[in-house]
Nucleic acid binder design. Structure first.
Lengths: 143, 143
DNA sequence: ATAGGTGCAAAGGGTTTGCAGTCGG
DNA sequence: CCGACTGCAAACCCTTTGCACCTAT
């Protein structure tokens, strides 16, 4: 996702209206590394906007995704997680604490993406989720 | 998934009852490379077992997953796909025809899994979905 | 005989939709 | 002002659950 100001001007120049709800959602997503799902965003922002509806949250998230400012990923089975990081990257899901963190390709030896072709199939995107136990939880589990 | 006969004896020796519905579902999944979802399985098998219920399909699939005979993956956002291939592998989803095919690690240069640790995080499983255009559709699209 | 499985319908959880009222441009 | 957006409730889709009946062992 671009900076708050850039997103705002992109919306403005594309004829989108800048409602308080949209601004709040954009601000919430900017630099957000927690991969929130829509219901969480709704719950959080409802504190400040008590009448905020699900439809507005979903509409705004879908709109931001459609213009490429955020992406959505199925990290768990249950629901969609939204991510302001639009550069290709990998998600790591910790089975103990439930946190989802980003891993960038530079950090992984032996893994070179994008691979653009396998067995004649053209590849244009990849969704990679590693699951396991995160550094913090590993330390905590040692007795 | 093991062979039909092996699955049957595993169930028998574990005290599971061998109902016609279960046998049909197991037979349907054996060597199935289409990554079907529960509703598709239900629809298909309903032809032969008109009273087959959703609960039976889901119960059986969940049972088979719990004993490790099949796995479930979220290839699309919408629903869970079941796969009799339990060896770690990658899914390729074709955006044109919608088919999902398996890719094995041997086929991918530069990709060596399992990677067991990244940044101190212990990794025990990975879900990898490549999306793009499959060989068949690439040929078909050239004009 | 009996535990476990089936089928039905209803409930559940996340997401979308329809529509009247509202507000940003 | 007007068209796009909001909020509400209902609808939606896939999956699970509750429960009476049934069936494999």
């Amino acid at each position: 996702m671009h900076s708050f100001d850039s997103v705002i001007s992109r919306l403005r120049s594309n004829g989108f209206k800048l409602t308080p709800q949209r601004l709040a959602i954009i601000k919430y997503m900017e630099n957000n590394k927690t991969h929130p799902h829509a219901l969480k965003i709704h719950k959080e922002l409802k504190k400040k906007y008590p009448t905020l509806s699900f439809s507005t949250v979903y509409n705004t998230l879908n709109m931001l995704e459609s213009i490429g400012e955020i992406t959505s990923v199925n990290i768990f089975d249950e629901y969609l997680n939204f991510d302001p990081e639009t550069k290709p990257h990998i998600h790591f899901y910790c089975k103990v604490c439930g946190e989802v963190t980003d891993i960038f390709l530079e950090d992984v030896d032996g893994l070179s993406l994008p691979i653009d072709e396998i067995n004649g199939n053209l590849i244009d995107s990849a969704q990679i989720v590693f699951k396991g136990i995160c550094k913090k939880c590993r330390g905590r589990e040692q007795q």
